[in-house]
Computed example of a mutant assay.
Amino acid sequence: MAFALTGFDLDTFVRETLAEDLGESLPGGGHDVTSESVIPADARFAGVMDSRDPIVVAGLPVAEAFFRALDPEMEIEVLVEEGAQVAAGTDLMRLEGNARAMLTAERSALNTVQHLSGIATMAREYVTAMDNPDCTLLDTRKTIPGLRHLEKYATRMGGAANHRMGLWDAAMIKDNHVLVAGSVGEAVRRAVEAGVQEIICEVDRLDQIEPALQAGATRLLLDNMAPPILREAVALVAGRVPTEASGGINLQTIKAKAATGVNFVSVGRLTQSAPAADIGLDFTPI
């Protein structure tokens, strides 16, 4: 299964993850002592990865890459598409190949699929709860270091869209930037003078909206505003730039906030707090 994400090197990720688990470069490391001592080198397994809960699937191509890294001849059949919503008990992948390779790669493969499917599942829950085709759910930069590209991929599989990928692709002016610059308008003006094309400005009061727009903000992040205030903010913006609601958003509040007319709702917990999906992998000797 072909898998490519801009800015993400799958081969390096697989290699470094397996090296960490195998203890490469550490005294006595570099091998799976349990499999090597218990499993004959030529033993073969058949395996089935399945979901134990209803989930939205994400990460199967990465799991496949882990197994192929240790047994390039392994027979692997991926049974569901990325982003598919499946019932508990659904088979996700079938494998057949070297038993040692399967056992050594098992945890890295499962950890990845469980984590990414957990994110995708939570994102789908938020999209469903929002129930608003005119508003887009966004993730944030609240990601585990080293996993941002994969985690943001998982939110897309769940039906969300990506906010900025990092510190480089858009300016986001927040309260600490405003504190140093002196005002919202001055902070935005400095970003404009620096030649930044996309300038997202956080505002937490209605009186900050007009100065931010006049200075050149290209999107407003309406922070921690209750729905009545959000409606008023959207009316003041009057479509001049996109608006984003952020802060205090959960499954109980997202529908009301999205219904205020904002273009986006951003939720940090999609990547920060999603529980791992319950996914298992059972082997049979052949």
Results as ranks from 00 to 15, higher is better:
Ser266Cys: 10
Glu16Leu: 08
Gln208Thr: 05
Leu5Asp: 07
Asn98His: 06
Thr17Gln: 08
Leu22Phe: 02
Gly247Cys: 12
Val184Asp: 09
Ala215Glu: 07
Ser246Tyr: 02
Val48Lys: 14
Leu206Asp: 09
Ile76Val: 14
Ser108Phe: 00
Pro211Gln: 14
Val78Phe: 04
Arg15Ile: 00
Leu92Met: 02
Asp11Tyr: 01
Thr218Met: 07
Leu18Asn: 13
Gly28Tyr: 12
Thr271Leu: 04
Gly216Met: 03
Asp169Cys: 12
Ala101Arg: 00
Leu230Trp: 01
Ile39Asp: 13
Gln197Lys: 15
Met74Pro: 06
Thr90Met: 07
Ala120Asn: 07
Ile173Met: 11
Ile209Thr: 11
Val178Thr: 10
Leu270Pro: 00
Phe13Arg: 00
Leu137Gln: 04
Arg44Tyr: 10
Met93Ala: 10
Asn250Ala: 08
Ala160Asp: 08
Ile229Gly: 06
Pro72His: 10
Val262Pro: 09
Glu198Cys: 13
Gln114Ser: 11
Phe283Trp: 12
Ala238Ser: 15
Ala238Ile: 06
Leu206Ala: 14
His149Gly: 12
Val234Glu: 11
Ala226Val: 11
Glu20Tyr: 05
Ala212Met: 12
Asp11Phe: 01
Ala256Trp: 01
Val56Leu: 01
Asn98Glu: 12
His31Pro: 03
Ala46Val: 04
Val113Ala: 12
Ala245Asp: 13
Val113Met: 03
Tyr126Gly: 02
Thr260Asn: 11
Asp21Val: 02
Gln214His: 13
Val86His: 06
Pro40Leu: 14
Ser108Thr: 04
Leu103Arg: 02
Pro40Val: 12
Thr121Met: 05
Phe13Ile: 00
Glu202His: 10
Ser25Tyr: 09
Asn98Gly: 13
Ala4Arg: 11
Gly47Leu: 08
Leu150Arg: 07
Leu138Met: 10
Leu147Ser: 05
Val178Asp: 05
Phe45Lys: 04
Val241Pro: 13
Ala4Lys: 07
Ser35Gly: 15
Thr17Gly: 08
Arg269His: 07
Val62Leu: 04
Ala160His: 06
Gln214Ser: 14
Phe45Gly: 08
Ala187Asn: 10
Ser51Ile: 00
Val62Asp: 00
Met157Val: 03
Ala277Lys: 01
Gly166Met: 08
Met1Ser: 13
Trp168Leu: 14
His177Lys: 11
Arg240Val: 10
Ala123Cys: 05
Arg219Phe: 01
Leu230Ile: 06
Thr34Leu: 15
Pro133Ile: 02
Gly7Lys: 07
Ser266Pro: 12
Ala170Ser: 13
Pro133Thr: 07
Ala238Val: 05
Gly261Leu: 05
Ile144Asn: 11
Arg205Thr: 15
Arg205His: 15
Lys174Thr: 02
Lys174Ala: 08
Ala274Arg: 06
Gly59Thr: 00
Val267Gly: 02
Val267Leu: 05
Met102Ser: 10
Ile279Arg: 02
Thr112Asn: 12
Lys142Gly: 02
Gly23Pro: 00
Ala256Asn: 08
Glu210Ser: 15
Glu198His: 15
Leu92Pro: 00
Ala4Thr: 13
Phe8Leu: 04
Glu96Tyr: 04
Ala43Tyr: 08
Cys201Gln: 13
Asp9Gly: 06
Pro61Trp: 00
Asn176Gly: 06
Asn162Phe: 01
Gly195Asn: 13
Glu77His: 09
Lys174His: 04
Glu186Ile: 11
Ile209Lys: 07
Ala43Glu: 14
Thr140Trp: 01
Leu236Cys: 11
Leu220Glu: 03
Gly59Cys: 06
His163Ile: 06
Leu206Gly: 11
Trp168Thr: 04
Leu167Ser: 12
